[in-house]
Nucleic acid binder design. Structure first.
Lengths: 198, 198, 198, 198
DNA sequence: AATGAATGAGGTTTCATTCAT
DNA sequence: GATGAATGAAACCTCATTCAT
C-alpha cells in the first residue's frame, strides 16, 4: 500500500502547510485548531489522526523546517573551501531561507518562543546541528590558523546565529523593512569574518 | 498625603516584583492572576487597582526594566572615551544586568515575545533607545575613522544586540550554563570591535 | 441529512425548555449557564453551539413565545365576527396561554424587563403584531360604528394589553392566586367592551 | 442635636437623588455603587452609613416615591365627590406624576421588576394602598349604584392600574412619545368609567 | 479513514461590601 | 461621621480534544 502511505503524507503536508499559514497570520495562541482544519480543508477531528496535539503541529513545523534548513545550509556550504567564506555562505543561505519562507520563519522565530518547555526540550536538539555548521567552520578556521585561537567557538557560533536571527526577526515583524536581508547577511558575515580572523 | 502615594508605589512594586517571580517561573500564559496576587500578598482584585489588566503588568515590567537598562547602560558607557571600548562596556553591562536580574531578564526575553501586538507596539520605542546607545558609538567610531565606513550602523547595532541577546537567552534557559556571561560579553565585544575596526 | 437537522432542532428545544424552567425559578440573572446546561442534560459548552450568549437564550425564548402567541391569538379571533367579541376572545386566549405556560409567561413578563436594551430593540417589533390584533378589532369596531369614534385605538389597545398583563403578572407572582385567570379575562373584556361601545 | 439629624436627612436625600439619576440612566444592574457615590458627591463607604445595601437604595426610592404618590393621589381625589370622577382624578394625577418625575418613574417601573424577591416582598405592601385608592372608589361606586354590582373590584382596580402603568412604561421608554400622558389618562379614565358604569 | 457534535475544565475581571484610618 | 483602599466571590465563554457515527 505505497499509495495509501503517500496519501497519508499528502494530507499531513496539507495540514502542516495550512498550519504555517494560519499560525503566521494569527499567531499560535490565537489560532484555533478549527482554523487550521478549515484552512487545510479537513475536519477538526482529522487533525488528530495526524498529530497528537496542537503543540505537536508546531513541533512538526519546527522539525521539518530545521531538517530542511540543515540540509540546505550544508549544501550551500559544501563547495566552499575557506572556512570563513563558509560562514558567509551560511549567512546568505539563512537569510535567503527566511525570505523565501517568510511564513515558516515567522512561526519558527516568533511563535516557537512561546513555550519554555518547547525551548528547552525541542529547540536544542535540532538547533544544535544547525549551530554545529557554524561551529565546525570556526573550529576548522582555528585549526588552519585563520581564526584567532582565543575565540570560544561555542560562544561565537551562537553569537553569529543570534545576530542573524535578530535581524531576521526584525525583518519579519516589519512590514516594509528598510534593508534587504541579503545586504544584512553580507554585513553580518563581514563583521564576523573580520572579528574572528587571526 | 505623601505617605499615601508612597504606600501606593510600594504596593505597586510589591505586585510587580511578585509578577516577575511568578512569570519567570511558570511563564506568562500559565501564570494566573491569582498566582501573582498570592505571591504579592494581596487579593486578586487589588491587582486591578494598580494595573488595568494582566497584560498591563507585563508591559509595566518591560517598561520599567527598559528604563533602568537604558539608564544603566548610559552610565556604564558615560566615562569611556573610545567608542569601540564603549561597546565593550555595553556588552558587559548588558550581561551583568541579565545575570543580576535573571527573573526579569527571563520575562523580558522569553515571555515578551508572546504577543505580536506587544512586539510591534511597545518593544520598538523603548528598545530603540537601547539600540541607539550601540548605534551612536558605532557612528562616532566611523566619524573618528576607527570604524569601517562601509558598516551599516543600523544593521551592526542590531546584530550586536542579537548576539548578546541570544547568548543571554541560552544562559537563562540553561539551568547550568557552561560559560559565564562575563566571558561571553568579552568574547562578543572582542568579535565586534575587531569586526567593526577600520 | 434531515435526521441531523431534526436532532439539532431537538437539542435546541431541549436547551430552550430547560432555560424556561430555570429562568422562571431563579430569575434570569441568578441563573447560571451551567444551571441551564444541567437542567437540559448537556454540557456547558454545548449551549454555545446553539446560542451565541446567555442573552441570546432569553431572546430566543421571547421570540418563539411571541410567534406562538400571535398565531394562537389570531386563530382564537379568526371565527369571531363581532369585533368587540373578538376582544373577549383575545383576553381569554391570552390568559389561557399564560395559565398553560406559566413558566414561559413568567420569564417573558418578569425577566424580559431586565434589560432596557432588550425592551427597546426586541420587544416592540414582535409585541407590535400582538397589539395590532387588539388595535385592528377596535378600528373595525369604529368603522362599524360599534366603538366610540373618539377612542384612540393606539392608547386603547395598549391599555387593554396593560390591564391583562398586570393581572397576569400578579397571578404569576402569587403562589395561590385568589381569582382564576379566566374570570379575570372575562371581567377585563367586559370592562373594555362596555368602555369602548358607542 | 436636631441639626445633626437634619444634616443626616440631607445627605440621605443627596444619595437618593443621585441614585435616581444614575439608575434611570444606566439601569440598576449596570449602575455601580461607586457611580452613585460619585454622583452624590460622597465616598463609596458613606453610602453604607445610610443604606444597608445597593438593593436597599432601590427599595428606599420605591418606598419614598410610593409614599408621595399615595399622599398625592389622596389629595387629588379628596375633593371629588363622584367616585367615578375620582378615578379620572387618579388617572390624571398618576400620569402627571410620571411626567414630572420621569427619572423616578423609570426606576420604579423598569428597574424594580428586576428582582422577583423585591416584587413579592416589597411591592405589594406599598402598592396595596395605592390600589386601594382605586378599589375604594369602585366599591363606593357600587354602594351608590353607579358601578355594576358584578364588577370584581380587586380585578378592576388592578386592571385600571395596569392600563395606566403600561402606557406610562411605553412613554418612559419611548424618547418621543406620540401621545401626551394627559390625553392617555383621559382616554383610559373614560374607558373605565364607562366600563364600570351600571 | 473521516467527520463534527459534544464535552468540560479553566481563568480574567468586576464590583458590592468592609474596615482601618 | 467620612473615607477609599482592599477584599474575594462569582460566572461567562472559549476551545483543545474525544468519540460515536
Amino acid at each position: 500500500m505505497e499509495a495509501a502511505e503517500a496519501r497519508r503524507r499528502d494530507k499531513r503536508r496539507q495540514i502542516l502547510d495550512a498550519a504555517v499559514t494560519v499560525f503566521s497570520e494569527k499567531g499560535f495562541h490565537k489560532s484555533r485548531v478549527s482554523d487550521v482544519a478549515r484552512a487545510g480543508g479537513v475536519a477538526d477531528g482529522t487533525i488528530y489522526l495526524y498529530f497528537k496535539s496542537k503543540d505537536a503541529i508546531l513541533i512538526a513545523i519546527f522539525e521539518e523546517a530545521m531538517t530542511e534548513m540543515i540540509a540546505g545550509a550544508r549544501t550551500a556550504m559544501a563547495n566552499v573551501r575557506d572556512p570563513l567564506e563558509r560562514l558567509r555562505s551560511f549567512a546568505l543561505f539563512h537569510m535567503d531561507n527566511v525570505e523565501a519562507g517568510r511564513d515558516t520563519a515567522k512561526v519558527l522565530q516568533v511563535e516557537l518562543r512561546l513555550s519554555n518547555t518547547f525551548m528547552k526540550e525541542y529547540k536544542p536538539t535540532a538547533l544544535q546541528q544547525y549551530l554545529d555548521l557554524i561551529g565546525d567552520a570556526i573550529i576548522e578556521g582555528q585549526q588552519r590558523g585563520q581564526v584567532r585561537p582565543e575565540v570560544n567557538p561555542i560562544i561565537a557560533r551562537r553569537a553569529f546565529f543570534g545576530a542573524l536571527d535578530e535581524i531576521a526577526m526584525q525583518w519579519i515583524l516589519t512590514p516594509r523593512a528598510r534593508y534587504g536581508l541579503k545586504e544584512s547577511a553580507e554585513q553580518i558575515a563581514e563583521l564576523f569574518v573580520r572579528g574572528l580572523r587571526a
